[in-house]
Design a protein around this nucleic acid. Structure first.
Lengths: 128, 128
DNA sequence: GCTTGACCTTCCAGTGGTGGGAAGCCTTAT
DNA sequence: ATAAGGCTTCCCACCACTGGAAGGTCAAGC
């Protein structure tokens, strides 16, 4: 498989796949012409990475998850801990975003949004 | 006011303030010794920026908000549009994060998390 | 066989918003 | 006089890509 094929299979840009090779997440073989030659296992790994990334795992988390995936004797507790930590981080971000959203929504609601210069949004940002 | 004073007043690191000058958000005067000399208005601007950033506005949004703040004849509609667009973006991010959270929470819940190798989290990431 | 165009390669630079740290000047207190 | 701390500029690093240039390779059509 060439890079564009495996890219569309995994739902990742070719650039990203080259980057993943750069940082050692995958090690595809090379054809005689210098092209990357992806095995089915490579394609699987990339799909795995694509899913893990879309769940918001960092690249380093993904590296660990890949290693755990490939370690058949892994303890599921190790994976679960990683996922749980990540979940907690997501919850923190969610709470923060919610707070931002509520504040902003309140301001937007208070602002007439017409041609007059009075603006509670600006006032709130400017208040000391 | 020197940079560290205005930094603690605005709740921003000195590094960040220098960066804001670099990109033209503020233009503090200079003392004879070359130190930045922040006026009260500079301090106000920085507090304004700090609040806007904490609401998640991008630097470019902040630039616009600052300009609108300083334009006494601004239309509040302009500010409101910016805030509303930003609010919609936050809502999109919130929805996405929620989706991630639910998926991950489900996986974590399904995983025994013990010493055995069976792990629905890994399985789910690996499933093709 | 030659051209065209799509695909592949490497390498370099840039993104946003800082953070870290070096090298060197200025100020204040001892 | 000296030491400590604050200030300056400058450059590099981060994360996870993304864009683009310059050039090699391949398959199709003439």
């Amino acid at each position: 498989m060439n890079i564009s094929e495996v890219a569309s299979a995994a739902g990742l840009p070719a650039k990203t796949i080259r980057y993943y090779e750069d940082i050692g997440l995958i090690r595809p073989a090379r054809s005689a012409n210098g092209y990357r030659a992806f095995s089915d296992q490579d394609a699987h790994k990339l799909a795995f990475l694509s899913r893990a990334r879309s769940l918001g795992f960092s690249i380093e988390d993904c590296r660990t998850l890949l290693a755990l995936w490939e370690d058949r004797s892994r303890a599921s507790g190790d994976v679960r801990k990683l996922a749980k930590d990540h979940l907690e981080e997501i919850d923190r971000k969610l709470a923060e975003l919610h707070q931002m959203r509520d504040t902003l929504a309140h301001l937007v609601k208070c602002c007439a949004g017409d041609d007059r210069p009075d603006c509670p949004i600006i006032d709130s940002l400017a208040k000391s």
